[in-house]
Design a protein around this nucleic acid. Structure first.
Length: 204
DNA sequence: CCACGGATTGGCT
DNA sequence: GCCAATCCGTGGA
């Protein structure tokens, strides 16, 4: 039985490192959002790294703008953006001030308050087994399930509203590294990581 | 002011 | 597998 009290929150020093290291080490850790009296939580199973210094797909590649300014802060903040007219995506800012790096959380495995996550996604109290894998297996989907929107842009992950709990590293042999999904620039960079054989990953 | 494209999703062929 | 929906951010006129 998963119990939040048994885990420690990741601190600023975890986030303020190289974005590729942080991306890989975020796999297997627990993404948590306080929701009134209870907690929503999911195990991170798929991520992508973005680095504005070398990576034309990163939002920060064009320099600082109103939209991407959170990505230029010190690591440990949440960067949330809106895209395609419908969807929010959430990222963990990494590195030091002005690095312009972040890790996109692409998929989690529901762990706590699964019924609430399901309700947020489908507005339906009857959990259907056929839908269970599509609650949080995509960056827009998990934001909807967790109720993450523009108001959460810039939230400090070292505080109590949204945070990530530590867990043992996933061994390298269980991690798959591939190119990133859904981008048109810098498509050759192999900066996507996911847990091998995990059914909640967005796409093989 | 206006045009364009996007770190997606879901529905249809 | 293909494609429309949908609207904000960005940059150019």
């Amino acid at each position: 039985m998963f119990c939040i009290e048994n885990y420690k929150k990741l601190t600023a020093s975890f986030y303020q490192r190289d974005v590729l290291i942080v991306a890989k080490e975020l796999l297997g850790k627990y993404f948590v959002k306080k929701d009134k009296a209870n907690f929503l939580a999911g195990k991170i199973v798929e991520v992508e790294a973005y680095n504005g210094k070398f990576d034309s797909a990163a939002h920060t590649f064009i320099g600082k703008t109103e939209r991407n300014k959170v990505m230029f802060e010190n690591g440990g903040l949440l960067y949330v953006y809106f895209t395609y007219g419908n969807h929010f995506c959430c990222n963990v800012v990494t590195g030091k001030k002005d690095d312009g790096c972040a890790v996109l959380i692409r998929a989690v495995e529901p762990v706590l308050s699964v019924d609430s996550l399901y309700l947020n996604r489908f507005n339906d109290n009857n959990i259907l087994q056929k839908n269970i894998y599509s609650v949080t297996n995509g960056p827009g989907k998990l934001c909807q399930a967790f109720g993450i929107n523009k108001s959460h842009n810039g939230v400090n992950l070292c505080r109590d509203e949204i945070f990530i709990l530590n867990e043992r590293k996933i061994p390298d042999k269980n991690i798959v590294q591939t190119t990133r999904i859904g981008i048109k620039k810098s498509i050759e960079l192999p900066w996507r990581f996911f847990i091998n054989n995990n059914p909640y990953v967005s796409k093989k």
